[in-house]
């Protein structure tokens, strides 16, 4: 049983590391701010979940488990909120996304 947990934990951590790296790569490669935001989103959702999950499995039962859970919850709530606020601010600041096909019905 402990071996299984170690295996699972390693799997989560490695997958998370891969996702983080992919997200970082996307932030460098994608053509404009709004598309880069999607890449950053990858690192803030699944990757964070996987890494924290891996750490939770690694840490075993105890208080740190709950602290990790708190960190995860916190990131999951603030991450999209910050992204949304940033996108809204960029939009109102006059930054037009690539492929903006909404006929600029905004005022």
């Amino acid at each position: 049983m402990p071996e299984l947990i170690t295996l699972l934990s390693s799997l989560c951590l490695l997958l998370g590391a891969f996702l983080i790296f992919s997200g970082g790569l996307g932030v460098l490669r994608f053509p404009d701010f709004f598309t880069r935001m999607h890449a950053a989103g990858v690192t803030e959702t699944m990757a964070v979940t996987l890494i924290v999950l891996g750490l939770m499995l690694h840490s075993g039962w105890g208080l740190p488990l709950f602290k990790l859970l708190l960190i995860l919850l916190f990131v999951m709530i603030t991450g999209p909120t910050a992204s949304h606020a940033l996108a809204k601010s960029a939009l109102h600041g006059g930054l037009r996304p690539l492929g903006d096909d909404s006929n600029n019905e905004r005022h």
Binding site: V27, F33, R36, A40, T43, V52, L86, S89
Partner: peptide, 17 residues
Amino acid sequence: IYDRILAVNLFGTKTVL
């Protein structure tokens, strides 16, 4: 400037991890 803010935000979440 928004790219920079995004980058700082990304940097921050990675620091947390």
